[in-house]
Computed example of a mutant assay.
Amino acid sequence: MTKPKPADRSVAGRKLDHLRAVLEDPDVERGRSGFDTISLTHRALPELDLDAVDTSTRFLDKPLSFPLLISSMTGGTGDEIARINRNLAEAAEATGVAMSVGSQRVLFTDPASKGSFQLRDAAPSIPLIGNIGAVQLNAGLNAGHCLQAVQALEADGLYLHLNPLQEAVQVEGDRDFSNLSGKISDLVSNMPVPVLIKEVGAGLSSSDVELAYAAGIRHFDVAGRGGTSWSRIEYHRRADEEDDLGLVFQDWGLTTVESLLETRDVLVKKTDPTTLIASGGLRDGVDMAKSIILGADLCGMAAPFLAAAQESSAQVIRQIEKLRREFQTAMFLLGCADVSQLNANVSLIRSRSKFW
Rank of each mutant, 00 (worst) to 15 (best):
E47M: 05
L276H: 12
R325Y: 05
A239C: 00
V188I: 06
S340K: 15
L260G: 03
V150I: 15
S313P: 00
R58F: 15
Q310C: 12
A91Q: 09
Q118L: 10
V28N: 08
V209W: 03
A152Y: 07
Q151C: 05
E47H: 05
G227C: 03
N163E: 06
A89G: 01
V188K: 09
E241C: 05
H161D: 07
P63F: 15
L267A: 05
G157V: 03
S206T: 11
S340D: 14
G182P: 03
E262P: 03
T37P: 00
R352F: 11
G227N: 02
N163T: 11
V11P: 00
L282Q: 04
Q166S: 09
P124I: 02
H145M: 07
D8A: 03
I38M: 02
L40M: 01
G173T: 11
P67Q: 01
R14C: 04
V11T: 02
R218T: 14
V248M: 09
I38Q: 07
E242V: 03
A98H: 03
D176G: 08
V339P: 11
S207N: 13
Q166Y: 09
E154T: 05
G115M: 04
F177P: 08
D174W: 13
R32T: 06
R83G: 02
K269H: 04
A314L: 06
A155W: 10
C336N: 03
A214H: 13
A223G: 11
D27K: 13
A215Y: 09
I132T: 01
C146W: 12
D244Y: 06
V53M: 07
L88Q: 04
D243P: 10
A7K: 04
Q319C: 10
M288D: 08
D61I: 14
G75Y: 02
V268Y: 10
A239D: 14
L158R: 09
D17K: 01
L137C: 07
E234M: 05
M73P: 00
I184K: 07
A212E: 01
P304D: 08
V101Q: 01
T2A: 11
V200M: 10
L282W: 06
P6V: 10
N163W: 08
R225M: 09
G226Q: 08
D265V: 03
S178Y: 09
K198Q: 13
D272V: 10
C146N: 12
E262M: 14
H219I: 13
A307M: 14
L40A: 07
A44Y: 11
A89F: 05
Q170S: 11
I293T: 05
S291R: 11
L261P: 04
D287W: 00
L158K: 02
V286T: 15
A44P: 00
G216L: 13
D17M: 12
S206F: 03
E241A: 15
A89Y: 04
T2S: 11
M301R: 06
K269E: 13
D79L: 11
E262V: 08
I38K: 06
I293K: 10
H219D: 02
Q328F: 00
S189A: 15
S56G: 13
L162M: 12
V22Y: 14
G281P: 13
T55P: 01
E262F: 07
T263P: 09
R264M: 10
G280Q: 15
D49C: 01
K114G: 02
K354C: 08
R325N: 02
R9F: 14
P124T: 03
A223I: 00
F177M: 05
F355P: 02
R86H: 09
F35K: 04
K354S: 13
E326L: 03
F355E: 05
D240E: 06
N343D: 05
A91E: 10
